[in-house]
Design a protein around this nucleic acid. Sequence first.
DNA 1: TCTGGGGTCCTTTATCGG
DNA 2: TCTGCCGATAAAGGACCC
Length: 349
Amino acid sequence: MISHLDLDAFFAAVEELEDPSLRGKPLVVGGDPRSRGVVATANYAARHYGIRSAMSSAEALRRCPGVIFVPPHMSLYVEYSHAVWQAVREIIPVVEQVGIDEGYLDLASVDPDPRQARALAEAVQAAVRAATSLSCSLGVASCKVVAKVASDRRKPGGLTVVPPGREAAFLAPLDVRTLPGIGPRAEERLRAAGVDTVGALASLDGATLGALIGGKLGLMLRDRARGIDPRPLETSVERISIGHEETFERDVSDRETLYAELQRMAARVAARLAVRGDAARTVTTKVRYQDFSIRSRSVTLAAGIDTADEIAGHACALLDRALSDRPGALRLVGVSVSSLEPFRQLPLG
DNA sequence: TCTGGGGTCCTTTATCGG
DNA sequence: TCTGCCGATAAAGGACCC
């Protein structure tokens, strides 16, 4: 059995622990409502007003004029996260961490008997609370997708166990959007075709599926909808790309300003490459226009590079290409590197 | 003055060498 | 020589997730 663990309103919960005067008041961790900020996490008091993650901070303020805004303190959350996962691993050593606030636990590695799964999950929940005072929700099932959906059923602080054999029946009545992999676009198309529940998705034929979502992806999501998910736990994943991007407070069209921004971001990317001792063969520049559309241009080099100047040089040339293909003021620029490889010094002699 | 920043993965299209 | 096809790889875009 697998368990999916999800920390409840993680960023907001940490802020409440650090400053008890915030507790119970509507709280948003995220960007400034007076500029282009969005909500990263809202605590449950704020959610009561309809405030949700990814909502613009300005909209959040409109829904609850008394809401308190706190900017994100990522390094603090990383510390708490370390403490959480350390506590988890003391009970379940085999885990796959997915991002800062969730992950999968291989309960079977401790006890293969499915009847012991609930007790193990309860022990994990208690250990997290004891170590950090944080609350988390857990889902327990035979595969990842069902465990993940289950962890979301009884938030906050919940534990939902789906016995083996009950996967499809558990998923069937749920809203189709609750299935991971169904985003806004797929949801819209499915609803237009009258598919509103996971169960309805599970019973679609291949042709309909192909027309609505696309062949390969459609078949995979239908399997998931049936509670079939062969993905194993990935206990170590290496990073594929490193990037930085920033939205300007006001749209920018001045080329020199954009170059300067790219240079700054290239320096940050280079610093992160250096920490890992890696070089990169691909540089990508991304721009976002006033109408929110995104364009990217990339080059792949014969040999890896790792200095800020080299990355910035390519990034600026790519920016020129993007802007000559489609001129216009930009609300965002970003630079990222991929095709990472270990940087090797030339062998001596 | 709606709409962040960090990513991953998949699909389509272009290009190039047999 | 021309054309078509095949496979590999890059590039670009789009959807999705936390």
